[in-house]
Amino acid sequence: MSHIVQIATQVRDAQAVRAGCDRLGLDPPSEGTFKLFSQTATGLGVQLKDWRYPVVFDLGTGETKFDNYQGHWGKRERLDEFLQAYAVEKTKIEARRKGYSVVEQALDDGSIKLALSVGAAG
């Protein structure tokens, strides 16, 4: 039986953030306090491609902080791409932890289909 799931992503797992960065060919995330245009944010910082300032994830609250000046300092699509990569990697980590095998399929519309099944983790 198939189920369609939509997820509002909260970023709370450093391992999945690192895996998402690897997946997209980004520099590894770093922990600290980061300057955004007029504020600072503390957490796990990720520098997205072509973004002036990093995106900062507070792993304790799941909150995402960034300043892209309404797209002038970075396209929102890059953040959406990262959040998708994070969600896929987090799902794979949790599925394998529970003993499920995972098969990933990229779809023509840019979405990603994950099929999980009971058995040896793949």
Rank of each mutant, 00 (worst) to 15 (best):
residue 98 K to N: 03
residue 21 C to H: 02
residue 120 A to D: 10
residue 40 T to W: 06
residue 43 G to L: 02
residue 18 R to S: 03
residue 76 R to K: 11
residue 79 L to V: 07
residue 60 G to A: 04
residue 98 K to C: 07
residue 12 R to M: 09
residue 9 T to I: 14
residue 92 K to C: 01
residue 10 Q to R: 15
residue 30 S to L: 12
residue 103 V to H: 09
residue 72 H to Q: 14
residue 120 A to K: 09
residue 82 F to G: 00
residue 70 Q to G: 07
residue 75 K to N: 11
residue 47 Q to V: 11
residue 102 V to R: 03
residue 107 L to C: 05
residue 68 N to Y: 14
residue 89 E to W: 02
residue 122 G to T: 15
residue 15 Q to L: 12
residue 8 A to W: 15
residue 80 D to G: 09
residue 114 L to I: 15
residue 77 E to K: 11
residue 50 D to Y: 08
residue 88 V to L: 03
residue 115 A to F: 09
residue 55 V to C: 01
residue 68 N to T: 10
residue 114 L to T: 05
residue 116 L to E: 06
residue 7 I to M: 07
residue 73 W to H: 05
residue 35 K to T: 14
residue 27 D to Y: 08
residue 38 S to D: 06
residue 107 L to F: 04
residue 27 D to S: 14
residue 62 G to Y: 13
residue 44 L to V: 12
residue 102 V to C: 00
residue 71 G to Y: 14
residue 110 G to S: 06
residue 21 C to D: 00
residue 111 S to H: 14
residue 22 D to E: 12
residue 72 H to G: 09
residue 48 L to G: 01
residue 24 L to N: 03
residue 118 V to S: 04
residue 103 V to M: 02
residue 50 D to Q: 13
residue 12 R to N: 02
residue 29 P to K: 00
residue 108 D to L: 03
residue 66 F to L: 11
residue 111 S to E: 15
residue 45 G to L: 01
residue 85 A to I: 01
residue 87 A to M: 15
residue 21 C to R: 00
residue 3 H to G: 03
residue 12 R to L: 02
residue 84 Q to G: 09
residue 59 L to C: 04
residue 97 R to C: 01
residue 110 G to R: 11
residue 50 D to F: 12
residue 83 L to P: 02
residue 81 E to F: 00
residue 4 I to V: 09
residue 25 G to M: 11
residue 112 I to V: 15
residue 39 Q to F: 08
residue 111 S to Y: 11
residue 95 A to M: 07
residue 109 D to T: 08
residue 101 S to F: 05
residue 98 K to P: 02
residue 41 A to G: 05
residue 98 K to S: 05
residue 75 K to M: 11
residue 120 A to Q: 13
residue 68 N to A: 10
residue 29 P to I: 09
residue 42 T to C: 11
residue 70 Q to W: 15
residue 107 L to I: 08
residue 8 A to I: 15
residue 103 V to I: 09
residue 17 V to K: 00
residue 24 L to P: 05
residue 49 K to V: 10
residue 115 A to C: 07
residue 106 A to N: 13
residue 68 N to V: 12
residue 112 I to W: 15
residue 25 G to D: 08
residue 83 L to Y: 13
residue 108 D to P: 04
residue 72 H to M: 13
residue 102 V to S: 03
residue 122 G to M: 10
residue 94 E to T: 04
residue 65 K to I: 11
residue 97 R to F: 04
residue 78 R to C: 03
residue 60 G to H: 11
residue 80 D to L: 09
residue 43 G to K: 01
residue 77 E to V: 10
residue 6 Q to D: 07
residue 32 G to H: 06
residue 58 D to S: 12
residue 87 A to G: 03
residue 100 Y to T: 07
residue 100 Y to A: 02
residue 67 D to K: 05
residue 70 Q to H: 08
residue 37 F to E: 09
residue 78 R to A: 11
residue 11 V to A: 00
residue 68 N to C: 06
residue 54 P to Y: 03
residue 69 Y to R: 06
residue 10 Q to A: 01
residue 34 F to T: 00
residue 120 A to I: 15
residue 95 A to P: 01
residue 47 Q to D: 08
residue 69 Y to F: 14
residue 39 Q to M: 10
residue 49 K to I: 08
residue 41 A to N: 06
residue 121 A to S: 10
residue 2 S to G: 07
residue 16 A to V: 13
